[in-house]
Computed example of a mutant assay.
Amino acid sequence: MTVWCLGSVNADSFYRVPHLPEPGETLAATSFDRGLGGKGANMAVAIARAGSRVELIGAVGLDGGWMRDRLKGYGVSVGHIVDVAEPSGHAIIAVDPAGENQILIFAGANRVLRGAEVRRALTRRAAGDMFLCQNETNQQVEAATFARSLGMRVVYAAAPFDADAVQAMLPVTDMLILNAVEAAQLEEATGLSTDELPVTDVVVTLGAEGVVWIDREAEQVAKFDAFPVEAVDTTGAGDTFTGFLLAGLDQGMHMVDAVDLAIRAAALKVTRQGTADAIPARREVEAFGTDS
C-alpha cells in the first residue's frame, strides 16, 4: 500500500547558537549547515525509511531540483512534486546546546498548489492507501475531503498550529496527531478536550513524557513512555514520529506496536543534528530499541 502525503518541501538553514535569541538581540551563530526539510518532506522521508511506499504531493521553485533529487535518494516517490515560479520554501532554524529550536519559515512554493493537481495525484490511489497532510501547504481541507470520498483514511498532523485550519480539518480527519502545546491551544480554541474531539483516533506527543493515544471507538486512553535520550536537536522529531507511526500502520502493525516504533524513531532522531537528512532507517530504530 501507499501513504499519500500532501506536504511542504523546504531548504532548512541551521544555525547553532549559544542560546535562543531574545527579542531585539543580535546573536552570533557558532556553525551553519543546510539540509532538506519541511514537514511534508520530513514525514515522507520517515515513511520511506521505515519501509513503506510514499508519494509526496508538493511543489518546489526553480531552485528546488536538489531537494527533489535528495527526496528520491531517500526512497520518496517525487512524481507529484511540481515546479512553480515562486521560490522554494525555506526555514531558518536556530538550535541551542540543549537541542531546543526556534524556527522561521517562508512558505514560498508550498502555498501555491492547485487543487486539480492534487486531485489528479490522489485518483491514482489504491485500496487501503492513506492520506496525510499538515499545515505548511494550501489545499488541505479540499484534498482531505476528496481523499475521504475515495475511501482513504485521513491522517492530519496539526502543525504548525493554526486554530482556524485545525477546526476546518476536524470534520474530515480520521486520525489527529498533535503535541501537548498544540492540544492545549486547540482546547482553548474549541472548548473541547482531546478526548472530546470528533475524531476516531487522537495521538498527543508529550516529548520526554511519552505519548497518549485516545481511541474514541473503544473509549480507551493508552499512555506510552518515552525513551530517555540526551537531545542534540529536537527539530523534526514530531515528523519522524508521524512518519514511522503511519508506516507501521501501513504495514499492518497494531496501533500500540506502531506507536512504540514511532517513539523509538523520534528518540533516535533527537540524538542527531538535522531534519530529513537525520531521520534514521528502520534497522537503526529496531537496533536502538533492542539496545535500550
Rank of each mutant, 00 (worst) to 15 (best):
A208M: 05
N135S: 11
E219D: 15
D233P: 13
A98I: 06
S149R: 13
D174M: 07
D164E: 10
E142H: 00
R119N: 11
A184N: 07
D233W: 01
I103R: 09
L122F: 11
C133R: 00
V211N: 07
I214G: 00
P198G: 12
I103G: 11
T190C: 04
A218Y: 03
F146L: 15
Y156G: 08
M130C: 02
L132H: 04
V229A: 00
T234S: 15
L170H: 04
F106I: 08
V212K: 15
L113G: 01
V221N: 02
L170A: 03
A109L: 14
D96Q: 12
Q139R: 14
T123P: 11
I105H: 06
G207V: 05
F227D: 01
G238C: 07
T205G: 08
F161Q: 08
Q220W: 02
A237R: 09
Q140P: 09
P171Q: 01
A222V: 05
L186V: 05
D162K: 10
E136I: 03
V212S: 04
E209Q: 09
V202E: 02
Y156Q: 01
L170P: 10
T194L: 08
Q167R: 14
T205M: 08
Y156E: 00
D201L: 14
A147F: 14
A180N: 10
T205P: 04
M169K: 05
V172H: 15
A127M: 03
E188D: 12
R124Y: 08
N138A: 12
A98D: 15
T190K: 01
L113A: 00
T145M: 09
V118H: 07
E182W: 08
Q134P: 03
A109Q: 06
A168W: 03
V118Q: 06
D233M: 03
S149F: 03
K223G: 03
V166R: 00
N110I: 12
L186W: 13
G108P: 02
N135C: 12
S193Q: 10
E219I: 03
E117G: 06
E188V: 01
N179V: 08
G108L: 04
I177W: 07
S149E: 14
P160V: 03
A189D: 02
K223C: 02
S149M: 10
Q185T: 02
A126D: 13
A189W: 07
V172K: 12
G191T: 10
D233Y: 00
Q185H: 12
I177T: 10
L104W: 13
R124N: 06
E217R: 05
I93Q: 13
A168C: 04
L206G: 01
G108V: 04
A127Y: 04
Y156S: 05
F106K: 01
D195Y: 08
N135G: 11
E182L: 11
E188Q: 12
I177P: 00
G108D: 03
D233H: 04
D174V: 12
V154Q: 04
A127Q: 06
G99N: 14
E100M: 14
P97H: 12
Q185W: 11
I105Q: 07
A163C: 00
D96K: 11
F131D: 07
A157W: 05
A183T: 08
A183G: 09
R153C: 06
V204Q: 12
R111N: 10
A159T: 15
A159Q: 10
